Deep mutational scan, measured.
Amino acid sequence: TLFEALYDYEARTEDDLSFHKGEKFQILNSSEGDWWEVRSLTTGETGYIPSPYLAPV
């Protein structure tokens, strides 16, 4: 399942991933609570992002 960003987000740590509203992601790991490890389909980068900022496509 692909997810889309509902809002912009600016990374706060080196493990976070900055992204823009509308960017699409592949979920790599969603078992860590509200922070999911994802791969951006736009940039190819991986990192953690807050799951409340995402919605299924």
Rank of each mutant, 00 (worst) to 15 (best):
D16N: 11
F25Y: 01
V38E: 00
P56R: 03
E10L: 10
P52H: 15
Y53T: 05
Y48T: 08
P50F: 15
S31N: 11
A11S: 14
Y48F: 13
T42V: 11
T13I: 06
L2H: 07
F19K: 00
T43C: 02
A11G: 13
N29Q: 08
P50R: 12
S18Q: 04
G44Y: 06
Q26N: 06
A5F: 01
Y53H: 07
S18G: 08
S40T: 03
G33M: 11
S30R: 11
E45L: 14
W35M: 12
F19P: 00
D34A: 10
H20S: 14
I49H: 00
Y7H: 09
A5G: 02
E45D: 10
R12G: 10
G22I: 00
P52S: 15
K24N: 05
T46K: 09
N29Y: 06
R12C: 10
Y9Q: 03
D8E: 07
P56Y: 05
N29I: 06
E23M: 06
G33I: 11
P50S: 08
E45F: 11
T13E: 11
R12L: 13
T1G: 14
K24L: 15
E45W: 09
K24T: 09
G33H: 11
N29W: 06
P52D: 15
V38P: 00
V38Q: 01
Y7T: 09
V57Q: 06
T46C: 07
S40L: 07
D16I: 11
P56S: 08
G33W: 09
G44Q: 06
E14R: 08
L28H: 02
S18R: 04
E14Q: 11
W36S: 02
A55I: 13
I27T: 04
T1E: 13
S31R: 08
I27D: 00
T43G: 02
G22M: 02
A55F: 09
S51T: 07
K21L: 05
T42Y: 09
D8N: 08
T1H: 11
A5E: 01
P52Q: 15
E32L: 14
Y9I: 02
D34Q: 10
D15E: 12
P50I: 05
L54K: 04
D16R: 13
F3A: 05
G22F: 05
V57K: 02
Y9L: 04
K21P: 02
S30Y: 12
T43D: 03
S30K: 13
P50V: 03
P52L: 15
L2F: 11
A11M: 04
L2I: 15
Y7L: 11
L17I: 13
T43S: 11
S18P: 06
E14L: 09
E14K: 10
E4T: 08
E37Q: 11
L54W: 04
Q26L: 14
E45A: 14
T13V: 07
H20P: 05
G22W: 04
L54G: 03
D15P: 05
L6W: 06
A11Q: 07
T42L: 14
E37G: 03
F3G: 04
Y48K: 14
L2K: 04
S18I: 04
F19A: 10
I27N: 01
E45K: 15
G47I: 03
S31Q: 11
G33A: 14
W35F: 10
T42M: 10
A55V: 14
V57I: 12
F19L: 04
L17V: 07
G22D: 03
Y7F: 14
S40G: 03
E32W: 12
H20T: 12
T46D: 03
